[in-house]
Structures are given as C-alpha cells and as structure tokens.
Amino acid sequence: MRTSFEGLRCGVCECELREDYFSLSKRSQTVTATPSGNVVMVSEDELVTDFCGIECSDYAEVAITSTLTTPYPSGDGKTVPCSLCLRPVDRRQPHVSVCMAKLEDASKPWLVTANVRDERELAVYCVNCAQPHRARHAEPQRDDSTSVAFARI
C-alpha cells in the first residue's frame, strides 16, 4: 500500500520519513472572520520540504525564524506586522504565509493522505516582501538582499 510519505526524505538529515513527520509550506491565503472563528482560505500551497521528526523540524524552524524581524505572527488576527519589514499585513487580503505542520499518515488502500495534527504559522509577508498567488516563486528578501532560510532548505 502506498503512503503519504513514501519515497520522501528529510530536508535536514536526508533520512527516509516515517508515519509521523513534519512539513514546511509556503502558501497564498486569506483569513475570513466568521461567528465560529477565523477561516483560512488557501489559494495556493507549495510544499517546501519535509522533516523526519521534531529534532530536524525544530532545527529548521530556528534557522528560519532567526532570519525574521518578527516570527510567529500575533495581533488582532486582522492585521499583523510583516515578518521581514514590519509593514502591516491585512490578513483579510491575499498574503503569503509560511507554516510548519505535524502530519500523520492516514493512507488507505484506495487513498494516499495524511492528517494534520498540529500547525504553526512561522511567518507572514506583506505584498512588498512576497507576492501572493505567486507563492511558488516568492522568495522573500531582506532589505540587505539576504535570502530567507526557508528558501534555501
């Protein structure tokens, strides 16, 4: 039976993935407030790389967040500072986000899939730092032209 992690290797240590693994993704998204809470509408999602376990995902997360001005976006939910330049990002408008997800394979003989067990948003970018709907091509840059770590992993 095929699995969601079949043939995939860790982006840090290059070992084969197991049933529980982590994934780093860049996405174009819009956040909409509803009476039952915020709904994230993802219009484009690109897998950057996978990690075999918590040690490798933590290593990559530290490498990524250390390059950011403000990692782990927080705020009123509608507007947060850009993780690079600190300009306000209206989350109700399309924007680029970087997330780390903990996945568990849930494949069946007729379906290759994984369940998301946990997810953390590591960064949010304004349209000047990364263009939404171009997440595949968005490589956020610092003002001094230093590349963000996730683009190099």
Rank of each mutant, 00 (worst) to 15 (best):
H95I: 06
V31Y: 12
V48K: 05
A151T: 15
D143I: 08
I153A: 03
T113C: 13
E119I: 14
Y72W: 14
V39M: 04
V116Y: 04
F150M: 14
G53A: 09
R136M: 09
A106I: 12
T146I: 10
E104A: 15
V124G: 06
G7M: 09
L86A: 06
S107R: 08
T34Q: 11
V80F: 00
A135I: 07
H95N: 09
S83H: 05
C85Q: 07
C10Y: 02
T69C: 02
Y125P: 05
I54M: 13
A135F: 09
R142Y: 03
I64V: 15
R2M: 08
E55W: 01
M1C: 05
D118S: 12
C126F: 04
E121G: 04
R91E: 10
L68H: 07
S83L: 09
E61S: 13
S23G: 11
V116M: 11
D76L: 01
E46C: 13
V112L: 05
A135H: 08
Y59C: 02
L111P: 01
A101W: 01
Y72L: 12
Y125W: 12
P81K: 04
C126L: 08
A60I: 06
A106S: 15
L24Y: 09
V48Q: 08
L8G: 00
R9F: 13
C126M: 03
A149W: 07
L17M: 09
V116L: 04
V62W: 06
C52H: 05
C52W: 08
E44V: 05
P109N: 10
S43M: 01
G77K: 03
A123H: 06
V40G: 00
A33S: 14
T65E: 05
D105H: 04
I153M: 15
E121D: 07
A101Q: 12
H133D: 15
E119M: 12
Y72A: 00
F51S: 06
W110S: 14
F5G: 05
R9W: 03
C56S: 08
L68C: 04
F51C: 06
L47M: 14
P81G: 00
C56V: 08
Q29V: 11
T79W: 01
C13G: 07
L47G: 10
P35W: 05
E104M: 13
C85E: 02
K102A: 14
E14S: 14
L103E: 12
R152N: 11
V96Y: 07
R152E: 14
A106W: 01
V89G: 06
M41C: 02
R92D: 11
A114V: 03
S4D: 06
V48S: 03
S145C: 10
C56Y: 08
D76H: 02
R92F: 00
